[in-house]
Amino acid sequence: MDVAARIHEQLSNCGIKLAASLPDDWVAPLIERIATDNRIRHVRVAREAEAIAICSGAFFGGVRAVALMGATGLLTCTGELATLNLRHQIPVFLIVSQRGSIDDHRIYQEVQGRRTIPLLQAYDFPYHILDRPDDVSSIPDAFETCRMQKRPFVLFLTRRLVKGEGTA
């Protein structure tokens, strides 16, 4: 089973029924896999903060949801995460590519690599990093932690997890 299939399986185990997404190339295979699952309502958005607010609305409909995006997209929604989710203590579960890591040789990702986690720490948003295929089994615990902490929770996917060993 490939990594996207394993993550998808764990999201199903969490009871996820809605996914809102805007892809980067690392999360694209997972998004397209979820899009074929007719048990999950998939919402393609035009801006990542839409995904945050859609998942927040779904929370009040009693539906478990996930927002999928790249690290650059996460940076664009920090205002909404603060003034909607932090303000009202609304949990939102995000799966985000951990761009800008030492094995991600894309110059336009280097700021994301240096500043994303410090930014989450400044907001006191919890996060967890999936780096190896065996880590994927921790997704239900991460989702429950998100619910309990009642705030945004970011689950990062590393390049090694989604692309395998080696750099590019």
Partner: peptide, 17 residues
């Protein structure tokens, strides 16, 4: 009280759910 512009997205998520 915040997230200006995103009441629409919140309402969509609620409507779908």
């Amino acid at each position: 009280h915040g997230a200006m512009g995103f009441a629409a997205s919140f309402a969509l998520g609620l409507a779908l759910s």
